[in-house]
Simulated scan of single mutants.
Amino acid sequence: MEIDVFNEVQDPRPWAAGHEQARFQQALTQARLADEAGYGCWWQVEHHGAEEFSLSSAPELVLAAISQITSRIRLGHSAVLAPHRFNHPIRVAERAATLDHLSGGRVELGLTRSTVPEWRLFGIDQAEVRAQTAAAFSMIPRMWTEERFSHDADGSGIPDIRDVRIQPKPLQDPHPPLWQAASSPASFEEAGRRGVGVLGTTMWESLERAERLIGLYRAAVAACADPVGAFVNNQVGFFTFVHCAETDAQARRNGAAAAAAWYSTRALSFFEAATDFRLAMERHQALIDAPDGGGLAGSFLRAEQGDAPTEGALLIGRLLGGEEVQDEEVFEVLSAQNSLIVGSQETCREKLRAYADLGVDRLLCLHQMGGIDDEAVLTSIRLVGELIPEFAG
């Protein structure tokens, strides 16, 4: 299992003068340390209008800066918001290829649909986002590998493109690995059928459900005979909150419980989770009822029908209902379902091993979360880095 870093450039209040500059400088320092410590890839998120939840609205610039102060760590965009009102496929292809040259061929590129608040911010019709994302997955690898590119107007809303050389071409041959960020059984299946790697999260998923999602993806990617890119990238990545300290008690004193609770409440608020949950349930029911069975995702969802809600799901419901829940309770629920990795090196080693045993290829460690002090974040990166050789290969 490769151990990576996942970064949001989070900037929780209270804000002091120069807080944004400080956060970006901290991210660069963390990236240097991750490069030296042997992490496999630095993954940078893209969000807009996220306030303290994320300053990473121009991740391609952050990754370009990191490319110039590191030498070996790979650079992952996790993930480009793919509907073309966010990022036209031509611009995505150009920027990623340019970064590939600047970094000496270290780019990994993910795509995703985004969610309700960002669609609204950019005036995107949510009925069109799936077609636009599919178009981006189809177009970008062709732009990289075809000498001249053409595209016939389709349901994605992108007009005809005729005989254009999209440049530069990537340094990596034939092109950087492709990924899809996924949060539902349907999107795990989509990633597999496209022949791209899948990037999920365990922040609100138990290890047991993560294992089933991995099985769903593995079945879909095994059946992929016509990948969107020039090759199949059959890797599974999951991100989770990771905080390692000298002892379990020190990890708690560093504010791990408060950070996990802060992240949970801010994420549910920013992503307008109540609306997103309703839309997801409508899609799930459509797959369950589909006359053709709804594919692998439909079978997955039907198998879950009748299951009692997990303690984590019940807690999400309470948070969405506006209930104030103590930080320690949020942390304990997440810990009980192994949704995060917090503690001493020995504790973190044991929890990392559980992910490796599931068949996770890339574990993306979110070290910089909430109000955890920067020195504690650097210590966590270093201590987890010392464990990397145990999981290599």
Rank of each mutant, 00 (worst) to 15 (best):
Q305P: 08
Q44E: 11
A249E: 13
W204Q: 13
D152W: 04
R74S: 03
V377M: 06
E8T: 15
V325Y: 03
T133F: 01
A286Y: 11
Q180F: 01
A290V: 07
D361N: 14
T112S: 12
E46F: 02
E246Q: 11
P309M: 04
L63D: 00
T70A: 04
L28M: 13
H19C: 12
W204M: 12
G322Q: 00
N7K: 00
R278W: 08
V92C: 12
D35P: 01
E146S: 04
P59G: 03
L75R: 06
A251D: 03
L99E: 05
N233P: 00
E282M: 11
E147D: 12
S150R: 09
R353D: 06
S67K: 09
R142K: 13
G40F: 13
N233R: 02
L383H: 06
A82L: 12
M143T: 03
E324Y: 04
Q337S: 14
A223D: 14
M369G: 10
A273G: 11
M139S: 08
G192D: 09
A290M: 04
F137E: 01
A96W: 00
G237Y: 02
Q21M: 02
V236H: 00
A134I: 01
E118Q: 14
S103V: 04
E146F: 03
V242R: 05
G157Y: 11
G18Q: 04
V164L: 15
H284P: 00
G192I: 06
E46V: 01
E350C: 07
G197Y: 02
S138F: 08
D35N: 03
E2C: 12
A257F: 07
R302C: 10
P177T: 07
D307F: 06
Q337V: 10
E375I: 02
D125I: 13
W204C: 09
V232A: 04
G195S: 07
L301F: 05
G197L: 03
G40A: 14
S380K: 00
R266A: 13
A249W: 00
R113I: 13
V377C: 10
Q132C: 06
V92R: 11
E375D: 15
A257N: 02
L279Q: 14
E189R: 03
E60V: 07
R193I: 02
Q132A: 09
M281E: 14
L213A: 08
L315E: 08
W42R: 00
R85K: 12
G38Q: 08
P89S: 04
V330K: 09
L319D: 08
R95T: 09
Q25F: 05
L296V: 11
R362T: 10
I388V: 15
R130P: 02
F137C: 00
H101A: 09
V342Y: 03
G38W: 12
D374K: 05
P291E: 12
G321P: 08
A27S: 07
L352F: 15
A34T: 08
G385E: 02
S156G: 10
A376R: 12
E332G: 09
V45N: 09
R113A: 14
A356H: 13
L319H: 09
E246A: 12
G385P: 00
I124F: 11
G371Q: 10
I316Y: 06
V196D: 01
F238M: 14
R382L: 06
R362S: 14
D307P: 00
V92H: 06
D307Q: 15
Y217C: 12
V384K: 01
E211M: 11
